[in-house]
Design a protein around this nucleic acid. Structure first.
Length: 693
DNA sequence: CACCCAAACTTTTTT
DNA sequence: AGTTTGGGTG
C-alpha cells in the first residue's frame, strides 16, 4: 500500500509543478501554467491529484476557487477526503490551526454544468428552474414525437427511439453534421436523414417549450455559455484553478468548456491515461488528451507517472506488450518493483457453462486461501456475458454484486414515481405527464393527450386538473392523484413528506399495473427513504438523474458493507478500481474485441484499451478465459444459440509467451495414456495411407 | 379507445 | 429477451 504522505519523484514533480510550495505565500495573481499528467493504471493518480489539490490550498488558494472535475461522484468524494487528510497532516506538522476544507465546486462535468446554468443561465435568458431529463425520458420524448410526425406509419421501419437518441446525442457531443454521423456510425439509417432532421428539430423545440434540458443540453448550453466572452469572464472570475480527472474520456464539448473558461491554460491541470480511453461511444475523444500539449503550446508541460504500485511485473509486461501493438498514444511503459507473482493465465474452456464452473472453482479456492470474495472480480465486455455465471453463483449460494447492469432509475416503477414528482414540479413536462396518466385504468394515449390539452388551455396551471374528469374506472384514483400533484406543486405538503405521500398514492397504481408489485414496492420505499437526504425537491430530482445510484445495494445504505461478496462488473464500470484477482470473461473475437468494432481501426484500438483496463485492475492474478463456444441470446430467426468464437486478435504471437496457457477441465494424463493415444493416431494414419497403396 | 395477444425485429459500453 | 407494431375484441 502506498503511503499517502510519500510521493515518488514523478508524483512529486506533478504535485508541485508551478507552485511555490516552501513559502506558502503564493500570490493569487501567479497561476501555474497548463499541466498534463499522464498517469498510467495504478500509478497513484488519485493520490497525486489529492496532493496537488491539497498543495494548492496550502499555498493559499481558497478552496472555493478550485474547480474539480471528476468522472463520477464516488471519485470526487474520495479525492476530497484524501485532500482533506493531507491538509490536516501538514497543518499539524506546521502546528497551524486546521480547519476542514470544503471543495464545493466538485463533480462531473454534467453536475458542474447544471450548477453553473442554474446560477448564470439567467444572463443568457435560460430560466433557472429547468428540469433535467434522463436518458429514458429523452428516448420517450423522441418516441412521442416520431409517432406525432407519423414516421412510424411508413412501410419501411423508422429507427427506434434509442437509435434516434444515439444519433442525436452523437451529433451534439461531437459537434458534427448529421450526414457525417449517419455515414460513419449509422450507415443503415442514412435513408432517414431528412426525417431525422425534422424529428430532432421538433425534439429541440419541444424541450425548449417544456423548460427541460437533457444530458447533452447541460454540456451544450454550458459550452455556448463559455463561448460568450462576457459571460465566460464572469464565471472565470470565480475560479483560479481547474483540475480535471480522466481527461482521456472527455468529449469536444467538455474540452470546449475547459478552454472557454481557461483560454490561456493557466491554472489548468488535467490528468488521464490515453491507454484507458474507453468512452468513445459517448463521443469522448482521445484526441483531447493527445492534443493537449499542442493546444497550449509552448507553455504546456507533460509529466508521466510510470511506476505502478498495484500489479506485479508479469501483469504489466502483458499490458505494455498489448498496448505497444496499438498504433497511437503516448505509449508510456509501466514498471513495478514487485517482480513476484504468476504470469497471467489464458484458460481455454469448452463453453460458457465450463467458464462459469471454472470461475466458481477458482473463486472458492482463493477464498479458502484467505482472499475475500470482495478482493476478487469478474469483468466482462457486455452486461449479458455474466448471465450464465450469475445462475451458477446463485445455485451455489455465492453472494455477488453486479455493477453496470440494469440501473435503479431504469426500473419502470421508479420512473413512475419520479414521474409523479417531475410532473408536479413542472406541469409542462409532458413525458412524465404521459407516463403517469397511462398508469390509470382505462386511460390510454388519446385520453392522456386530451388531458394535456386541457392543461395547456389553462396555461399549464396545475390547479386546472381538479376540474378535469376521466373515465369512471379511473376517476377515484384520479381525484386522489390530481390532489396530490397540486399539493406537491404548491408545496402544501412539506418536502420531506412529499415522496412518502406520492409513494402511498402510487401504491394502488402499482398494484393495478404490475403483477410483482410487492417486490417493486420495496424500491419505492427506498426511494422515499433516500429522498430524505436531499434538502429540496429540485436538488433531489436533478442530482438523482445526474448521479444515480449504481446498484440497488447503493440505496440500502451500509448494512451490506460487512458482508463478503464477489464483484461482477462491466469493464467500463470497473474503471479506477482494483482487486487482488481478476477474471475476464469471453476473451474471444466477437466479444473481445466486440463484433461491432470490426472493420473500424479506431474502434479496434478502443477494444484493445478496454482489454488493457481489464487486465490492469489486478494486483495478483489475472485469468483470461477463452471459451471455444459461447452462447448468445437468441439471435435473429433460426440462429443457433451457440457461436464458435475465434481466438481474440489481441492474443498475437508476441503476446502468447507472456501468458500461461491452460485448459479447463484440466486434462491430466499419465505417460502411458499419452503413449496409448499416440499409438491410436499413428494407426489411423497408417490405415489412411494404406488406402492408396 | 383501451387492452390483450401475436408476430417481427434488434444487438455494447453510460454521464 | 425485450421492445415495437399491428390486429382483434370488448
Amino acid at each position: 500500500m502506498l503511503n499517502t504522505t510519500l510521493l515518488n519523484e514523478q508524483q512529486s514533480a506533478a504535485v508541485h509543478f508551478g507552485l511555490d510550495d516552501q513559502n506558502s505565500s503564493l500570490s493569487p495573481a501567479v497561476i501555474s501554467p497548463p499541466l498534463l499528467i499522464i498517469a498510467g493504471a495504478g500509478t497513484g493518480k488519485t493520490n497525486t491529484l489529492a496532493h496537488r489539490t491539497a498543495q494548492l490550498i496550502l499555498s493559499g488558494v481558497s478552496p472555493e476557487r478550485i474547480l474539480l472535475m471528476t468522472f463520477a461522484r464516488r471519485a470526487a468524494g474520495e479525492l476530497s477526503s484524501r485532500a482533506n487528510r493531507i491538509v490536516e497532516q501538514q497543518s499539524r506538522k506546521d502546528s497551524k490551526h486546521y480547519q476542514p476544507i470544503n471543495i464545493s465546486w466538485m463533480g462531473t462535468f454534467h453536475s458542474i454544468a447544471n450548477r453553473l446554468l442554474r446560477i448564470h443561465g439567467k444572463s443568457i435568458g435560460l430560466e433557472s428552474d429547468f428540469v433535467i431529463m434522463d436518458r429514458g425520458d429523452s428516448a420517450d420524448l423522441l418516441d412521442m414525437l416520431r409517432h406525432e410526425l407519423e414516421f412510424t406509419q411508413t412501410d419501411k421501419r423508422f429507427p427506434k427511439k434509442n437509435t434516434c437518441l444515439n444519433i442525436y446525442s452523437k451529433c451534439i457531443n461531437s459537434q458534427q453534421d448529421i450526414a457525417d454521423i449517419l455515414r460513419l456510425d449509422f450507415p443503415y439509417c442514412r435513408e432517414w436523414e431528412s426525417e431525422l432532421k425534422q424529428l430532432f428539430s421538433r425534439y429541440t423545440q419541444s424541450k425548449i417549450d417544456q423548460l427541460c434540458l437533457d444530458y447533452d443540453d447541460l454540456l451544450l448550453y454550458c459550452y455556448h455559455l463559455a463561448k460568450v466572452p462576457d459571460i465566460a469572464a464572469i464565471i472565470r472570475a470565480q475560479f483560479d484553478y481547474i483540475l480535471v480527472d480522466e481527461y482521456q474520456d472527455t468529449n469536444l464539448l467538455q474540452a470546449g468548456i475547459l478552454t472557454g473558461l481557461f483560454p490561456t491554460g493557466e491554472g489548468v491541470t488535467v490528468v488521464g491515461d490515453d491507454a484507458q480511453s474507453i468512452y468513445s461511444f459517448r463521443s469522448a475523444t482521445v484526441d483531447n488528451i493527445l492534443q493537449f500539449p499542442d493546444l497550449f503550446s509552448p507553455r504546456a508541460t507533460v509529466i508521466s507517472l510510470t511506476q505502478n504500485y498495484r500489479s506485479h511485473q508479469h501483469i504489466l509486461d502483458l499490458s505494455n506488450a498489448l498496448l505497444s501493438e496499438g498504433d497511437e498514444g503516448y505509449k508510456v511503459a509501466l514498471y513495478s518493483d514487485n517482480k513476484s507473482g504468476d504470469k497471467p493465465k489464458l484458460v481455454t474452456v469448452a463453453d460458457d457453462t465450463k467458464q462459469a464452473e471454472y470461475i466458481v472453482e477458482q473463486v472458492l479456492a482463493a477464498r479458502e486461501s484467505g482472499v475475500d470474495l470482495k478482493q476478487q472480480a469478474v469483468l466482462f465486455r457486455s452486461s449479458y456475458h455474466s448471465d450464465r455465471l450469475e445462475l451458477e453463483l446463485t445455485r451455489r449460494n455465492i453472494p455477488f454484486v453486479k455493477h453496470g447492469g440494469l440501473k435503479f432509475l431504469e426500473a419502470s416503477h421508479v420512473k413512475d414515481l419520479l414521474g409523479i414528482l417531475r410532473w408536479a414540479d413542472n406541469p409542462k413536462f409532458s413525458v412524465s405527464a404521459f407516463r403517469v396518466l397511462k398508469l390509470l385504468p382505462g386511460v390510454g394515449p388519446k385520453i392522456a393527450d386530451k388531458t394535456l390539452q386541457h392543461l395547456e388551455l389553462n396555461q399549464f396551471d396545475i390547479h386546472s386538473l381538479s376540474t378535469w374528469t376521466l373515465p369512471s374506472a379511473a376517476q377515484a384514483l384520479w381525484e386522489e392523484l390530481s390532489a396530490l400533484l397540486i399539493a406537491i406543486h404548491d408545496d402544501a405538503i412539506p418536502w420531506h413528506d412529499q415522496v412518502n405521500k406520492a409513494a402511498s398514492c402510487y401504491q394502488s397504481l402499482l398494484e393495478i399495473n404490475y403483477d410483482d408489485h410487492f417486490v417493486r414496492f420495496g424500491d419505492v420505499e427506498q426511494l422515499a427513504q433516500i429522498s430524505q437526504q436531499f434538502p429540496t425537491r429540485e436538488r433531489f430530482l436533478s442530482e438523482l438523474t445526474l448521479d444515480p445510484p449504481q446498484t440497488t445495494g447503493d440505496l440500502a445504505g451500509t448494512p451490506h458493507i460487512d458482508d463478503d461478496f464477489l464483484i461482477l462488473s462491466t469493464v467500463h464500470s470497473a474503471k479506477g478500481q482494483e482487486w487482488k484477482n481478476v477474471h475476464i470473461l469471453n476473451v474471444a473475437d466477437g466479444n473481445f474485441p466486440n463484433e461491432y468494432s470490426a472493420g473500424d481501426d479506431r474502434a479496434i484500438e478502443e477494444e484493445r484499451r478496454l482489454l488493457n483496463v481489464a487486465i490492469t485492475r489486478a494486483k495478483n492474478e489475472v485469468h483470461l478465459i477463452q471459451p471455444l463456444k459461447y452462447w448468445i441470446p437468441e439471435q435473429q430467426k433460426n440462429g443457433d444459440k451457440h457461436v464458435y468464437g475465434g481466438k481474440s486478435r489481441f492474443l498475437t504471437e508476441n503476446i502468447m509467451p507472456l501468458l500461461e496457457c491452460t485448459h479447463y477441465p484440466c486434462i491430466e494424463r499419465t505417460p502411458e495414456e499419452i503413449a496409448k493415444g499416440q499409438q491410436v493416431i499413428s494407426d489411423i494414419r497408417e490405415k489412411l495411407l494404406c488406402m492408396w497403396d
